[in-house]
Design a protein around this nucleic acid. Structure first.
Lengths: 206, 206
DNA sequence: GGATGTGAATGTCTTCACAGCT
DNA sequence: AGCTGTGAAGACATTCACATCC
């Protein structure tokens, strides 16, 4: 497939959210202009984004809400559900486990690991926090495509190495470090402090 | 000032993190190539990023770690500290209040608001959750440049309107909605589900 | 008539490559 | 010699504008 830019993928996710909203309101058809208005972009951008994957609209009419929803879910790989393991039973981990947005989208947190004996064994949203030593064995029995890493910076790379070794192919990283992974593994890093810094930059430069 | 791209600002944040790391190890000088290696980019990119703001290096030598640190902190507006108010005393809010990365960077969470009577009055990391009705009055007495919005999607726009009215100029938004604000207010939205979807896209398209 | 799909034009970001200091 | 700083080239992303089809 042609190389698709990260921004296109992010916009598709947004469009999907809006489509679900429109569907809930009983709207059956939608134009690129309307999607653009909602997403803070242009109608040409919407059509271009979609055009990388096919032509889903009807000229003069727009797009069928239900069909476009299905196609985007397809494109984003959201037909299936994903088993997600979470490593690090700290505060952010705790918030993420219960985040309803994950479940709704088919991301199912199946296990939580930590190395702190004080945390191991405690219940989190119906899941028992397991000893990180079981990580490899567990993943051998029940593989997981996606892992969320919420450990301190110091332990993140080591955890990631073990995840990769156990066959995890995609990692959402909240630890403030640059992670090294093989080429066939995808890492997406989220760094709250960095987001705030883009704001302070904006405040300082006006 | 010339228009600086978001990616440049994000990379500067990263460089800053690496510089602090190098400083902690007693390293006094650093090359663009070394910063690039750490940040997963190229030396030319590093030099270009910096060149928008001045020339901080010495040819043949590289950059002084301490000087470059100071300059980047300056550029990012990190000389001062920021009072941050947090709206929404849910799980993500709870995690953020205690996030050490904020404090370290000079972002000081000064107040938390919620509208749920069950939450109002409870203590969070030394702060008492206040009734959102006091938001406008409080900000009148003690202004805040930055707010973090962690409310449900439905209430986010209303909260943002009040924040903007009370003079907040920068908003970090965790609610999964597109927010409307005046041109002089900056919004940065973080959406966890969307991050996971970029991963599922990557998994589905290989 | 109305909205899509898409080449072409424009704009933005990244990489190259080398002159210029130290 | 070594590494920065930066125009110029190249790659990539967005916007324009219009032929095409419902």
């Amino acid at each position: 497939m042609r190389k698709i830019s990260e921004s296109t993928v992010r916009r598709l996710s947004l469009y999907l959210r809006f489509l679900e909203h429109f569907a809930a309101q009983g709207q059956t058809t939608i134009s690129s202009a309307e999607l653009a208005r909602r997403g803070g972009t242009t109608s040409a951008q919407v059509r271009k984004d979609l055009s990388f994957f096919g032509s889903f609209g009807k000229r003069g009419l727009g797009y069928s809400v239900s069909e476009l929803t299905a196609r985007i879910r397809d494109i984003l790989g959201l037909r299936r559900t994903y088993r997600v393991v979470l490593v690090g039973a700290g505060r952010i981990g705790s918030a993420l486990v219960q985040y309803p947005g994950f479940r709704q989208r088919g991301f199912h947190v199946a296990a939580i690991y930590d190395k702190d004996p004080k945390k191991i064994g405690s219940r989190w949203n119906g899941l028992v926090v397991r000893d990180i030593r079981h990580l490899d064995g567990d993943l051998g029995k029940e593989p997981s495509d996606i892992a969320i890493v919420v450990t301190p910076a110091e332990s993140a790379q080591e955890v990631v190495d073990r995840l990769v070794h156990a066959g995890v192919k995609a990692i959402l990283n909240f630890a403030p470090v640059q992670l090294a992974v093989p080429a066939d593994v995808v890492v997406k890093s989220v760094n709250m402090a960095l987001e705030l810094e883009t704001l302070s930059f904006a405040l300082a430069n006006r």
